[in-house]
């Protein structure tokens, strides 16, 4: 009986896994096709004549600068978001003060803003402080717009940290800073790496803010590489596919790396706990 249950479970799990892995295979096939094959053919048919020059086109379009910009903007914005969000979540969940729920309320309102409502006021603000066409505008915006969701994710975890840990630390004469940086942050390592992944994905794939705030090629990110292949009347979908493959690779690698970190974080905290 138990055996049948497991066989059934694994069949379902494997089926779902195949379903989830399909998009990547599809994307790679997509990137090697011409528009006719993409739209009029079977999506999973092998390309009759693999168009490797789709990739060539992408590299000729000069992805180098874009790639580097994507990397450093993503890293900086993700780092800032995680740090700022952790600090805020810490005071909201662990410290005693009157306005903590008010502050949390304001942060939650940040979740609710549709970006197209914010676009025009934001542009105007950055224009007034001369930050248009300056990567700082992107970094600040990315950092801020990911803060609410990061705080929300951290919230549930910070509440589960036992009070005893803090009490013990204080008796040992530890300061709040030390407690935050040396006890709380390491304890929340698993969830931090989750938020890192989520932040990275968002920042890496974002294009509305970049296109609006940045006009110099020198500061644009990989997502504009996609724009390069959208024409007035015709779009080169194969080349877009190639750009998507090139841009998703680093994310997959980073993701696999951080998954390992999650495991490490868990083992580390398990040892302590």
């Amino acid at each position: 009986m138990r055996h049948i249950g497991y066989i059934l479970l694994y069949t379902v799990l494997a089926f779902v896994a195949v379903f989830q892995i399909f998009p990547i295979i599809w994307l790679v096939l997509f990137s090697l096709k011409s528009n006719q094959e993409i739209f009029a053919g079977n999506p999973f048919a092998l390309p009759t004549d693999p168009k490797w020059d789709n990739y060539l086109k992408v590299f000729e379009g000069g992805v180098g600068t874009y790639f580097w910009n994507s990397v450093w903007i993503t890293v900086v914005a993700t780092g800032l978001t995680i740090l700022i969000a952790s600090m805020a979540t810490y005071t909201i969940t662990r410290m005693h003060w009157k306005f903590s729920s008010l502050v949390l309320g304001i942060i939650m309102i940040g979740l609710m803003i549709p970006i197209h409502s914010a676009l025009i006021p934001l542009y105007n603000m950055f224009l007034n402080v001369h930050l248009i066409d300056n990567p700082l505008s992107i970094i600040i915006t990315y950092t801020t717009y990911n803060l609410p969701i990061t705080v929300m994710i951290l919230l549930g975890f910070y509440t589960t940290i036992p009070r005893e840990i803090e009490e013990a630390a204080i008796i040992d004469g530890s300061s709040i800073h030390r407690m935050f940086f040396q006890i709380i942050l390491p304890l929340s390592a698993p969830i931090l790496s989750t938020t890192v992944i989520i932040n990275m994905i968002y920042n890496w794939n974002e294009f509305v803010f970049v296109n609006t705030f940045i006009s110099s090629d020198a500061f644009k990110t990989l997502t504009v590489g996609i724009q390069n292949f959208i024409g007035q009347y015709m779009t080169d979908w194969g080349a877009i596919g190639a750009t998507l493959v090139i841009s998703v690779l680093p994310i997959i690698i980073a993701f696999l790396f951080f998954s390992e970190k999650i495991m490490e974080g868990i083992t580390a905290s398990a040892v302590k706990g």
């Binding site: 001369h130 248009i132 390069n228």
Partner: peptide, 30 residues
Amino acid sequence: AACSDTGGSEEASSGDKKTVEFMHLWPEGS
């Protein structure tokens, strides 16, 4: 934020050269 005030938009008037900004919608790729 404050520093970058001096960057950006000012180069238009620098020197005798005038800069005309031009935006179009025909990307190289497509």
